[in-house]
Write a protein that binds this DNA or RNA. Structure first.
Lengths: 255, 255
DNA sequence: AATTCAATCGTACAGCATACGGGAATGTAG
DNA sequence: CTACATTCCCGTATGCTGTACGATTGAATT
């Protein structure tokens, strides 16, 4: 074993994979056995498994079985599992298909950010396992770059300083990832454990009876009593509330 | 193996552990061998390992070795690793030591939120592994509840609807976790891999030369050229910029 | 047909969480 | 003092993980 998020692999190899760079590796490829799959097929198999059963299901063994090959065969396509995850992530990031530099987009900058939010959120819905993947030192793939470019571009003409523009994009992306990640995580756990959020809370009813101290948590009690936690579309409201507030906040310093 | 985030354990047992409920379990505890440790000692050992080498180092085997006992001994203190993580998390959440209901706090609500942000950020600094722990369906421990209560209370008197108050606290907490998590993740990777952010980028210099398409990413290019990514305290600025903007945004709807 | 080289993949190893069952230590009851 | 109950301790075993290594297979060139 090495793994451990070490990033130990050759970055050039990883980048060549992410950008599907055919010219990078094979100097004289004419000889030898033909590969049975493309990298995209391998990645698609992994994504399919992760979609259905979460990141843990996308083990090298499971992915190989899904393709009908031996486990070690995967290592001819991908140098390690880390790179496979990078490829999985970038392929679903690319699904967001944001408008490029010259292409038409919503007129208002806020609508443009909302487009980023909606498509990112939809991506998390389709692929809840994304929430399980760390985006620290992210894979520098086309999907990630396109997303960053688009989000930056939505706010590029507001008159923010370059520093503030970067920070604003950072904050907006973080908030969206956070909110969409929570949603996705909840959905994932419901599917994986077969236990709804409601029954999860029910099984913890003793918490309120036995441990929750009302005098220590007056605000929680009050919010609860006033219906602040009622479930009417709570998730969607929370998602858009935070987004709208940070957009308000950004708007407030550009006027 | 079971693990798998199944939440399969008995919630009542978990809650009793989290709240250090001595009355819950032992009906007639007078007989039998004496335990060598307290739960807190076990948790402290796990936290120590995770602080030094990340979550992966806090394996049952390593924690047991740290305590000088056999691996399986841990299971007399904790029903599974999941619960151990819950306990680790709550103990560091409690370290934030927010002022309780009656206790003195900064006058301005924004300063009160900043206190939440600063202490949470400091916690991530001390314990970077927190970033690796999922807070979906969180452990309902004292540390988590105290944090939620405090953050809610900071904005309770702004005139927000209960629904909006909950959403605002949610968004603020999400943003702070996101920003502090990125910081912590970066620091963790630097320590764990021995590779600084700079050399990580250096090793990927071929990205800019070979794959990055300038015409596809004009805004990134511009922000880069204008110094938007210059490293002067970038992290701290990004952290506070996002927080201040969302506070602005919240302020903008209460006046 | 022989050669060459990449793809395939069985086996092995270290590490993981943990089920199980036996052994060790401590208290009370006889 | 002995017997027993109860609890902690922990060695072993199982099935999972990623992956290093080396043997084998198959296709194209010589």
């Amino acid at each position: 074993m090495a793994m451990e998020h070490s990033g130990g692999g050759d970055p050039n190899r990883t980048l060549a994979l992410l950008w599907r760079d055919r010219d990078a590796e094979p100097p004289v490829p004419a000889r030898g056995r033909k590969p049975r799959f493309t990298i995209d097929e391998v990645v698609a198999a992994a994504v399919k498994l992760a979609d259905a059963e979460g990141m843990a299901a996308a083990s090298m063994h499971r992915v190989a079985k899904e393709l009908g090959v031996g486990t070690m065969t995967l290592y001819t396509y991908v140098p390690s599992k880390e790179e496979l995850i990078d490829l999985m992530l970038d392929v679903v990031l690319r699904e967001r298909a944001f408008p490029g530099p010259g292409e038409p987009r919503p007129g208002d900058w806020r609508d443009q950010v909302r487009l980023y939010a909606d498509r990112t959120r939809a991506m998390y819905r389709r692929h809840p396992w994304v929430q399980e993947v760390s985006m620290i030192r992210p894979s520098l793939g086309p999907g990630m770059m396109a997303g960053n470019e688009y989000l930056l571009s939505t706010m590029a003409n507001l008159g923010l300083s370059p520093r503030d523009l970067a920070a604003a994009a950072n904050a907006v992306a973080g908030l969206i990832e956070s909110a969409a990640g929570v949603e996705a995580g909840r959905a994932r756990l419901e599917r994986l454990t077969g236990e709804t959020e409601d029954t999860w809370w029910q099984r913890r009813s003793s918490f309120w009876e036995r441990y929750f101290d009302v005098t220590e948590h007056p605000t929680i009690v009050q919010v609860w009593n006033d219906g602040g936690y009622d479930a009417t579309d709570q998730s969607s409201c929370a998602f858009s509330f935070g987004l709208e507030r940070i957009l308000d906040g950004i708007a407030s310093i550009v006027d």
